[in-house]
Design a protein around this nucleic acid. Structure first.
Length: 796
RNA sequence: GCCGAAGUGGCGGAAUUGGUAGACGCGCCGGACUCAAAAUCCGGUGCCCGAAAGGGCGUGUGGGUUCGAUUCCCACCUUCGGCACCA
């Protein structure tokens, strides 16, 4: 048998699969049995020009699972597409010159070729790209449905603005006050922005986490992000203005200790106060300066600052008149933008009170009981919360309330390379949605699409000028485009029915495949994509468009591949090229090693030696199995250790892939079997079964060499072969290694018969000279026997 | 500051339900083959004492529960990740 040639073999099988469209999965007949379906999906990749290790990891995980489930008899949907709109594509095009469409389409062509070289079994008949009119037509259509339902709306909002990219960023795209994409410092700007009302689903987004098979840490991150707080909303009266101002507090029990009142600088009431305040100049000046500051600047300020308005609010519980201040430590976008300050029991209020000499009144003692709180005094704090809110509620001055940290999703972008928002502004009719039959609103080609502080589309006069769909008069198109997270909030639905030109997808088909059974991707999408897509499904379900409310039932987070202790990245210059590695070692070795490095949900350290070792394993497998294949097939399979090991390997790999998602240990299990086969030799009566087993269960990882060897073994089409099932009876051992301990320390170990009674085990253990040496002269107070494991003597 | 995850040989890691710590691989050492090298194959490899037999130590640190703890409990240290004036 020749030395294994990965290059030729991989090309050979890839060609067969391609020619046969072997991994295309048809849509089900109406009423088909849903228990057979399995939707395996990796997060929509940005089409960079070449594959990087991140792609290799995430798609290999998906492919191993897809190939495994296919062989267990499942109908597996395993599609791929491209996140081809958005900043990275646009920036890449600007950098390289040319149009973003040309850039992404060239990239898609190239990366598709590399993906095929990896042997990944995508259903290429369902491929999609976010930037094509066939796709974004339906992104726009879905936007309109949300718009009709009042879930997409426009409001002026202070937004994060990246001066470098000339674009509004979502909160989630700002890290440490810097733009996620270019690293520039972000500033604040007030603009009309489009929002999706995801806060309407805050509670449900929180509650439904319980039913998801996600890593607990991801659920925790989402829970914190949603940030539910229970408390009360309490009305404070401002007599001079004849208004009631609500505040949110989690500590209604401290209400008697509220000695001042604070409004956020952006609070709508502040404008009125400025007009009537004797302190108007100072107040106006403060509000202006606060508005120019970034949130991070405000948070990082050494000392809290504020200005007294000259007005007073009335504490509803004791009629105390407390001064109203404006201070930028109170944020407009949490709670009601106004607080009752309780300096005795809130660190921030205390800091402010100390700086401005405001009174500090203690109302909770060390025993967590109320003091100086009228009829509530001496109540435990927890009880007092309820009692005070109840009493306020009876007088119409307050109520139980829940507040969330989650904000609505700002999805408009002042950039070119995204889906146009299908809205027309008309002098007569105002904001008018584009009728469905006029979709898609196509993105026009622009000579200059670079960001200039206003949306680039604003410069496309001919495109912007249109007729109002409602009155037929003059209208102007919305010039902002959609965040790419809108594209990725529904793409998994489109895969189900990728060629539908009447609707984004057929509900019955989508309901058959969805939800995604196993989603795979990075942790970094936890608080953005994963929340947005969940919100979308809930909204789409309420609109009757889908029959489920959660998009991803199972989620597996892939870690990072590191080199020299740091995450691989172009900027650090520590990247390795998967395409080159395929050329040198073959895709099978790369696939295997990527998953063998360590647990796939953690970070993994790359070493070239490790990959070489894996290539060595593949050649060794090829040689050993080849030796077995060359021998005549005798057909007898006596029960021996190698046979038992084969069945054990089947059981372990099946469990690792089917339940544990433990990819590295499954490979180790196959290696153990191959080692055992090597020791036993090709002449062993169980050698053939062992070889077939090893080839069969390594196939999801190393599909090419496995297919080749399967053929050598006289079979064909391993990718369609049913997954082997371990024979329970063959798993039973006749003997086991009895461990004998004295006081918990191992003193001897030897093989004994599997069904020896306890007394016999104890007798054998006692008889051991090594054990004797340790129990001689001592009294054995206690003897513990663990069946099939050990005997432990406890001496006194 | 708050929330979360993780600390095991020279290295990546395994140990799934409290029961043989270190599977599997890398590296290293020794051997076979070879004129030689590479490749390949075989064997060894936690640390300390010992010629060996054997003994002691050992899963971040300190305690605890238990016949027995990498696994459970308490306190702490370190690293990484998320959030951060959220009322």
């Amino acid at each position: 048998m020749d030395r294994y040639d990965a290059h030729t073999t991989e090309a050979k099988w890839q060609r067969v699969w391609e020619d046969e469209r072997a991994f295309h999965v048809p849509n089900p007949e109406p009423g088909a049995d849903r228990s057979r379906k399995k939707y395996v999906l990796e997060m929509l990749p940005y089409p960079s020009g070449t594959l990087h290790m991140g792609h290799v990891l995430v798609h290999t995980i998906g492919d191993v699972l897809a190939r495994f489930h296919r062989r267990t008899g499942k109908l597996v949907l395993h599609p791929i597409g491209f996140d081809s709109f958005g900043l990275p594509a646009e920036n890449e095009a600007i950098r390289r010159g040319g149009h973003p469409r040309d850039t992404v389409e060239r990239n898609i062509t190239h990366i598709t070729r590399e993906m095929k070289r990896m042997g990944w079994t995508f259903d290429w008949d369902r491929v999609l790209a976010a930037h094509t009119p066939e796709y974004y037509r339906w992104t726009q259509w879905l936007f309109l449905r949300l718009y009709d339902a009042g879930l997409a709306y426009r409001k002026p909002a202070p937004v994060k603005w990246c001066p470098q990219d000339q674009v509004v960023l979502a909160n989630e795209q700002v890290h440490d006050g810097r733009c996620e994409y270019c690293g520039s410092e972000v500033v604040s700007k007030n603009l009309e922005q489009w929002f999706f009302k995801q806060t309407a689903y805050a509670q449900e987004l929180l509650d439904d986490l319980d039913g998801l098979d996600w890593p607990e840490r991801i659920k925790t991150m989402q829970r914190n992000w949603i940030g539910r707080s229970e408390g009360a909303e309490i009305l404070f009266r401002i007599d001079e203005l004849d208004v009631d101002i609500p505040v949110f507090t989690t500590r209604p029990d401290t209400l008697f200790g509220s000695t001042f009142f604070v409004l956020a600088p952006e609070h709508p009431l502040v404008a009125q106060l400025i007009d009537r305040s004797s302190n108007a100049d100072e107040l106006g000046d403060y509000v202006r300066r606060a508005g120019a500051k970034r949130g991070e600047e405000r948070a990082a300020a050494e000392e809290k600052t504020g200005v007294f308005t000259g007005f007073f609010a009335t504490n509803p519980v004791n009629e105390a008149r407390i001064p109203i201040w404006v201070a930028d430590y109170v944020l407009m976008d949490y709670g009601t933008g106004a607080i009752m300050a309780v300096p005795a029991h809130d660190e921030r209020d205390r800091e402010f009170a100390e700086r401005y000499d405001l009174p500090i009144v203690t109302v909770i003692d060390d025993g967590e009981k109320l003091v100086d709180s009228a009829q509530f005094s001496s109540l435990p704090a927890e009880e007092a919360k309820r009692a005070i809110v109840d009493s306020l509620e009876q007088r119409g001055r307050g109520k139980q309330a829940i507040s969330y940290r989650l904000r609505d999703w700002s999805f408009s972008r002042q950039r070119y390379w995204g889906s146009p928002i299908p809205i027309v502004y008309c002098e007569q009719c105002g904001e008018v949605p584009v009728p469905d039959e006029q979709l898609p609103v196509e993105l026009p080609d622009l000579e200059d699409y670079r960001p200039r502080g206003i949306a680039p589309l604003a410069g496309a006069d001919e495109w912007v000028r249109t007729t109002c769909p409602r009155c037929g008069g003059e209208g102007r198109r919305e010039v902002e485009t959609m965040d790419t997270f809108v594209d990725s909030s529904w793409y998994f639905l489109r895969y189900c029915d990728a060629h539908n030109d009447q609707a984004p997808f057929d509900k019955e088909i989508a309901d058959w495949w969805c939800p995604v059974d196993q989603y795979i991707g990075g942790v970094d999408h936890t608080t953005m994509h994963l929340i947005y897509a969940r919100f979308f499904m809930k909204a789409l379900n309420d609109l009757g468009l889908v029959g489920f409310r959660e998009p991803f039932q199972g989620f597996f987070t892939n870690g990072w591949v590191k080199l020299g202790g740091t995450k691989m990245s172009k900027s650090k210059g520590n990247v390795i090229s998967p395409d080159e590695l395929i050329s040198t070692y073959g895709a099978d070795s790369l696939r295997l090693y990527t998953l063998f490095m360590g647990p796939a949900d953690g970070d993994m350290e790359w070493t070239d030696e490790g990959l070489e070792g894996m290539a060595r394993f593949v050649r060794r497998l090829y040689r050993l199995v080849g030796e077995v294949a060359e021998r005549p097939h005798t057909g007898d399979e006596p029960a021996n250790e190698l046979l038992r090991k084969s069945h054990e390997t089947i059981a372990r790999v099946t469990d690792d892939l089917g339940r544990r998602l433990s990819f590295n240990t499954a490979i180790a299990a196959v290696m153990e079997l191959v080692n055992e086969l090597s020791r036993a030799g090709a002449a062993d009566p169980a050698a053939r079964f062992a070889a077939e087993t090893a080839v069969s269960v390594i196939q999801p990882y190393a599909p090419h060499v496995a297919e080749e060897l399967w053929e050598h073994l006289g079979h064909s089409r391993l990718w369609e072969e049913p997954w082997p099932v371990a024979d329970e009876s063959q798993l039973q051992r006749e003997t086991f290694e009895l461990v004998v301990q004295v006081n918990g320390r191992v003193r001897d170990r030897f093989e004994v018969g599997i069904d020896l009674p306890e007394e016999e085990l104890v007798a054998l253990a006692t008889a051991s000279p090594r054990v004797q040496a340790h129990i001689e002269g001592a009294t054995v107070r206690k003897t513990i026997v663990v069946p099939h494991k050990l005997v432990n003597f406890v001496t006194g």
